[in-house]
Design a protein around this nucleic acid. Structure first.
Length: 594
RNA sequence: GCUCUUGUAGUUUAAUGGAUAGAAUGCUGGCCUGCGAAGCUGGCGAUGCAGGUUCGAUUCCUGCCAGGAGCACCA
């Protein structure tokens, strides 16, 4: 439709003898200003030195000569906007179209045939799954689904730090705490124990680092022990330590798995840091050799103070973010995160042959060194340079309340989920459903509340929660969307009972706001996938839900006495399939009742 | 100090350079003998400061002020 209008305008301009005017056709913010609007008169007026309003009138007249039947009328308003109002018939047709498509509504083929891998969540075994992981997961899963809806073949990857100091800290903490009494407790309980152990080990380590060597604690304290544990873990020399490691690894991974199930994510690939390290080391060595063979021009890595570094600032360009030097192999010969990341990149392209795009979702704190890594990758594998994309999101922060991260009482993803779900369960107390069903719905609603609060705003900024207020379930919220869906669903059930079938042809004259929004869904999906931004969908769904709820409040939908009832039911049906599909794209399930 | 990033109602936020800056929450009025009140329907309330580009700036540029993050052997 948008293109159709554009072409009409171009033709009108041609007839008026005006050329080379760039203009846009868009939806006005306010529906009062029509369904589409163009600024062509304002942009063109300067060129031919005329008054925008006069030019707008001229273009309007020209357009009216051959108005397609989808357009009801054209008006000139404001400073010279030309507004297009779509016809009754157009909206009825769009409702019919949505009915025909069902849950395929909004699908497009913009990424047809493209293979995309997206890496997100990335929690570390032996460490708590914190709310930041919840954030990466929500964004990554939603982007994955949006890309799929645009025709891409998407695989989901998870990258986990299975080695490193944090593991030693956790195992040290476990030693100190003693093993849990009930070894057959649930994964989540045992994972909590491991997470707590990590916090304890971490604290002890820090305390020891800060302590003066002369103090009683300073010698042979936690730090020394943890470092030695770390070595044992690295070379797997101590069978007892290995056993604890294997157990802890399994428990945390299983606990993560339970969470993924609750969150609606299924990964295709799990990459482990320990496996990427040797690959990365090999790559670095290969490219260090170039230093010897061809000085200056081809060297990528170089030695500095005993470490192997990449001096990325050499490649700084005007107008691009500044890069800096990073260590890839420490002076002790150990590979750093950057090196493993290199290995991971190579491994990804090997795992999925013919990959067109590799996406990584992380918090913005990693943006600077990810840029350096990306630069290194682009030098080593020029063919991958344009196939990498880093999606950056803000941090999740908590304000208010009496929480202190110093004391180690950080909010884990799981406790946050659990508290939210419990709160929803409280609201549903009155429902007379089976307990199992109630719990299932409460879980879906709780997950929706959290996911929506993450996805509702543009992904650059931080998300701030006030601990004392809980996640919202009203207004601009996930549960509001689910509620609207459940409500529409119960209307449809009633229609079925009363035997009134949906029919997109029995409309009456007035056009509801919800109709003016429904047909826009595919454009929104397309934009979200272009920009890797779920929030466009989230905001759109709120708008549609509000319009539908308003329609619901002001109309009796199911009524044998009303000739237009069948149309209203069709409209309700169209709304419900857009809502269900839209929620799916956000990674949220839509229960039939709640 | 350098680099990146963000400043919009009390709070959380939206707006490919366009119309009276849109919502939610909050406070405040009115709606359940008509399909789910997690709802509908009124009211109050905002672009950090100073310049510049433009017919037009929340948006782009410069400076200042204020948050946040990062800056060689952690990830």
């Amino acid at each position: 439709m948008q293109d159709k209008i554009k072409n009409l305008i171009k033709e009108a301009l041609k007839n008026l003898g005006i050329e080379d005017v760039s203009f846009v056709v868009e939806h006005p913010e306010d529906l009062k200003n029509g369904d589409y609007s163009t600024n062509v008169a304002m942009a063109g007026a300067k060129k031919i030195k005329s008054n925008p309003k006069e030019l707008a009138e001229k273009i309007k007249k020209e357009l009216e000569n051959k108005l397609p039947k989808e357009i009801e009328k054209i008006t000139v308003a404001g400073a010279g906007f030309i507004n297009f109002y779509l016809s009754r018939k157009f909206f009825a047709q769009s409702v019919e179209e949505i009915l025909n498509k069902g849950e395929k509504v909004g699908k497009n083929d913009a990424l047809g045939g493209k293979k995309i891998m997206i890496e997100y969540t990335d929690p570390n075994p032996f460490k708590p799954f914190h709310i930041g992981h919840l954030m990466t997961n929500a964004i990554g899963e939603s982007v994955a689904r949006i890309l799929e809806h645009s025709g891409a073949e998407v695989s989901r990857a998870n990258y986990q730090g299975d080695v490193g100091l944090h593991v030693a800290k956790a195992i040290f903490g476990m030693h100190k705490k003693g093993m849990p009494q009930d070894m057959s407790a649930s994964n989540s309980v045992l994972a909590q124990y491991i997470g707590d152990s990590y916090v304890l080990g971490s604290e002890e380590y820090e305390k020891d680092v800060e302590a003066k060597p002369s103090s009683a604690q300073g010698f042979g304290g936690a730090r020394k022990e943890i470092d030695s544990l770390n070595k044992k873990l690295y070379d797997k020399s101590d069978p007892q330590v290995n056993q604890v490691y294997d157990w802890g690894f399994k428990i945390t991974m299983n606990a993560f798995q339970d969470l993924y199930e609750m969150l609606g994510t299924e990964f295709d690939f799990y990459f482990l840091e320990s496996q990427m390290a040797p690959i990365g080391e090999r790559i670095v060595k290969d490219n260090l050799d170039k230093l010897i063979d061809a000085p200056d021009s081809k060297m990528i890595f170089e030695k500095s103070d005993g470490a192997v570094v990449f001096k990325a600032e050499k490649y700084n360009k005007e107008g691009q973010p500044k890069l800096h030097t990073r260590v890839f192999i420490t002076s002790q010969g150990l590979p750093t995160y950057e090196t493993k990341e290199l290995g991971l990149t190579e491994e990804k392209f090997k795992t999925e042959p013919n990959l067109d795009l590799s996406i990584i979702v992380t918090a913005n704190e990693q943006v600077d060194y990810m840029r350096v890594v990306a630069k290194a990758v682009s030098l080593i594998y020029p063919e991958h340079e344009k196939k990498m994309k880093h999606i950056i999101h803000g941090m999740m922060r908590l304000t208010g309340g009496k929480m202190s991260s110093r004391k180690g009482n950080v909010v884990t993803g799981e406790s946050f989920l659990r508290d939210t779900i419990a709160l929803i369960g409280e609201k549903m107390k009155e429902r007379e459903w089976a307990e199992v069903e109630k719990n299932k719905v409460a879980e879906a609603v709780g997950v929706a509340a959290i996911k929506y609060s993450i996805l509702r705003s543009a992904s650059g900024g931080d998300i701030v929660y006030n601990v004392e207020e809980s996640v919202s379930t009203e207004g601009d919220s996930g549960p509001y969307l689910q509620y609207s869906y459940a409500r529409a669903n119960s209307v449809l059930e009633k229609a079925q009972k009363e035997n009134i079938l949906p029919d997109p042809h029995t409309f009456s004259v007035e056009i509801a706001e919800v109709e003016k929004l429904l047909y826009r869904f595919p454009e929104i999906v397309l934009r979200s996938s272009h920009e890797y931004e779920p929030h466009y969908i989230a905001n759109y769904l709120i708008e549609v839900a509000r319009a539908f709820n308003s329609f619901y409040g002001n109309n009796l939908i199911v009524s044998k006495a009303d000739k237009a009832s069948s149309y209203k039911i069709a409209l309700t049906y169209a709304f419900s399939s857009v809502m269900k599909t839209g929620l799916h794209l956000l990674g949220i399930v839509a229960p039939k009742k709640m």
